[in-house]
Structures are given as C-alpha cells and as structure tokens.
C-alpha cells in the first residue's frame, strides 16, 4: 500500500538558548493509505504538535516531510495551502463552527476556499450533511446544534472536499460517551467505506484501540508505532 504521509527525523523546537524546548525530537512516522492511526501520549507530550506538522499547518524545525511520496520541503505557502485544502480534512475538539453562518455555509467553507462555485459547493455540502444525518439542520445557525450534532457537522465539513486524510484532534474530547460513540462510528465508517486515512489524536485508550495502529509519543519522542 502506498504511503500518504512520511516524516523523517522531525524535530520541533520552541524558544531560544536557555528556554529552548524540544516539542518533537527525531520523530519518524509513516502513514499508509487507508490506515487508521491513533497518536497517543500524555498531555504535553507533543501529539498535537506532530499532527499539525503532518497536516501542513505547522512547520518542523528540522527533518523531512513527504506527502504522497513527494518532499514538500520546498513548497511555497500557497502550494501548502492548496495541498491542505484538497487532500486533508480536519475535525477539532472544539468544533470551530462559525456560529453566525448556517450549518450549510460552514460545511461548504472548504469548497469555497478551493474556489468552487457557490451552487456546486452548496450541493456537495448538502450531500455531506446527508451522510452525517444532518440534512434537516442545513439552514440552522451553528449555535443551534448540540455538541454531537456540531461534531457531525464538522465531520461533514472535513470530508466535503473528498480528502485523502482526515485529521482529528481529540474528536470526542468534548462529547459524552454516547454521542462520542456516534462520532467515532462515523469516522471509522469513512475509513472503511471510503478508504479515507484517519489520523486521530486522543487520550481515550478505547478509541485508540479501535485504530489499526497506535503511535505512542512521550516527551517528543516516539515510544512505539
């Protein structure tokens, strides 16, 4: 199976001289197409930092990053933006739905950013909402949804562009166990039915156990995975 994301000897350093801090310290990661991978570890171990770098939202201090077997080290920010928009979807712990816009607009946002026409964007957003069983909430404002509904809308937003990889940082962290289960199920269905690669950052060992593989990180270093 092809490798979607490969990181070689990643480091991420914060601060200078006396205050220098290695958030990541020589991390190697390989994520294959269609896998579901959990990144686990204690708080402050560097999980989010790793995910941000793998997802092109942050830049490593050292090391190489290959997306679809191409080194993106020399990419300009515009190329990185486009790659992220097209190939990656995001689900955040705190949802980040725009409360003033309708759910439909929120879900259509990545398509609009991609420069797709409003009509087409809305059409595809509606289909994505249907897939998470929220089509009747399309016209509601983001604030009108419950936590579980919000996260489902976020999943719709994450997959509306047909990405290769969906990154989820503590996707169930703000949900009760029942709604959390629903969200997990949705994510794993995407993985099974559509072959979307999942990268999930989580504290939840139960959720982590459901993934094909776990990357355990401690003090910026990989313990196993």
């Amino acid at each position: 199976m092809s490798v979607v994301i490969e990181a070689k000897n990643l480091t991420k350093r914060y601060g200078y001289r006396d205050t220098v801090f290695m958030a990541l310290d020589g991390v190697d990661v390989k994520i294959k197409k269609g896998e579901s991978v959990a990144i686990v570890g204690k708080s402050g171990s560097g999980k989010s930092t790793l995910m941000h770098i793998l997802a092109l939202m942050d830049k490593q201090t050292d090391g190489e990053l290959l997306i679809n077997e191409t080194n993106v080290g020399g990419y300009k920010s515009k190329q990185l933006d486009q790659l992220r928009n097209k190939e990656f979807g995001f689900v955040f712990q705190h949802f980040f739905l725009n409360p003033r816009e309708t759910v439909l607009e929120n879900v259509a946002l990545p398509l609009k950013i991609a420069g797709i026409s409003r009509r087409e964007a809305h059409k595809r957003a509606r289909a994505a909402l249907k897939a998470v069983d929220l089509e009747d909430k399309a016209r509601n404002k983001g604030t009108a949804l419950s936590g579980g509904q919000k996260q489902r809308a976020c999943i719709a937003r994450a997959v509306v562009t047909d990405p290769q990889v969906v990154f989820a940082d503590e996707p169930t962290g703000n949900l009760d166990s029942t709604t959390g289960k629903q969200v997990e199920e949705l994510l794993f269905n995407l993985n099974k039915n559509q072959g979307i690669t999942l990268v999930i950052v989580t504290h939840d060992s139960e959720l982590a156990a459901k993934c094909d593989r776990q990357i355990v990180i401690k003090d910026g270093k990989i313990l196993e995975g």
Partner: peptide, 14 residues
C-alpha cells in the same frame, strides 16, 4: 481570530 485561523487551516491563502 478563531475564524481566521480556521479559514487558514482549511487552506485559505494569506
């Protein structure tokens, strides 16, 4: 701030 951050994360250019 948060909205701008989100749009950037979703690939909107500077």
């Amino acid at each position: 701030t948060r909205e701008i951050g989100l749009m950037k994360a979703l690939g909107l250019g500077k």
